Simulated scan of single mutants.
Amino acid sequence: MGASILYAAAVIGIVGILAGILLGVASEKFKVKVDEKEIKVREALPGNNCGGCGYPGCDGLAAAIAKGEAKPDACPVGGEAVAKKIVEIVGGEIDSVRHVAHVKCAGTCEKAKDAYDYVGPEDCQIAANAPGGGPKGCSFGCLGYGSCKRACQFDAISIVDGVAVVDKDKCKSCGQCVLACPRHIIEMVPEDAGAIVECNSKEFGKDVKAVCSAGCIGCGLCQRNCPQGAITVKDHLAVVDYAKCTGCGTCKEKCPVKIIK
């Protein structure tokens, strides 16, 4: 009886030792190598997981930065402060130009006409599927139902008089409002942009004026008078080349409908 117990204990002990050895070998063979840079970059990122960088959350961005697939300043929420920390970890350079969201519409309730009375959920995505792409007479203008406002995690957007307005000081450049807008009238522009066009309509001038008193009529006065050649009229709409614009104000002065600021 005693010999049997000792034999069983010996077998269990040997099996335990062998299992331990096998587990140790397996852990070494199949262990996942951890990139220390990736860990440090992840710790430096703010953790909002907003997706504004174009990667699946902060973990995805950290991995991309560590591999050299993304720039150190790729996090729009962290800004320059976070970018500097990441540069200390992986090296590289920082793009000092900060971008903010801009709504290309000045068609307030007073200036923009409605084609019909809309009755339904106050959501731009839903309203855009209504007849005519929504009740607003201008099919390029802001619907004003706040899909962008709800998408913004930083309370940087408000709806004022039927149009989305961005608070540049609160904007973190995450780009979620750009994705949320069904009419694609929000774009990211340099914070220090010299001139900004507050219209997105690509209709002919007379058609624009028929539905909105604040729309670009594509007259070309801004283009002809810009000393830097920073504005061109494309598809009946004034477009600014921010790299060339010096903010001299000539385009604003010449614009007959005052939609350049």
Rank of each mutant, 00 (worst) to 15 (best):
I159K: 06
K244G: 09
N225K: 12
K234S: 04
C171V: 05
D167G: 04
K104Q: 14
G133M: 11
A26V: 13
V239T: 07
L45F: 11
D167A: 04
C174L: 07
I89M: 01
G13L: 12
L143V: 15
I126F: 15
V165D: 06
T108W: 00
I17N: 09
A66L: 11
V97T: 14
K111I: 06
V240T: 11
K33H: 13
D161E: 09
D95I: 14
A127N: 07
I186S: 05
A193P: 15
G137T: 12
L6R: 11
D95A: 09
Q228W: 11
C138H: 01
G60C: 06
D117Y: 15
D114R: 13
E187W: 01
V208G: 01
A112Y: 00
K252F: 12
G52N: 10
I231G: 02
Y55Q: 09
I259P: 00
C138L: 08
G249T: 12
L22A: 15
A214N: 02
V165S: 06
D155L: 08
V178R: 04
G16F: 15
L143H: 07
C222A: 10
A63V: 08
A74V: 12
A243W: 05
C174V: 08
T246E: 14
D123M: 07
N200A: 04
P121T: 01
I12H: 03
G229Q: 04
C199H: 02
H184V: 10
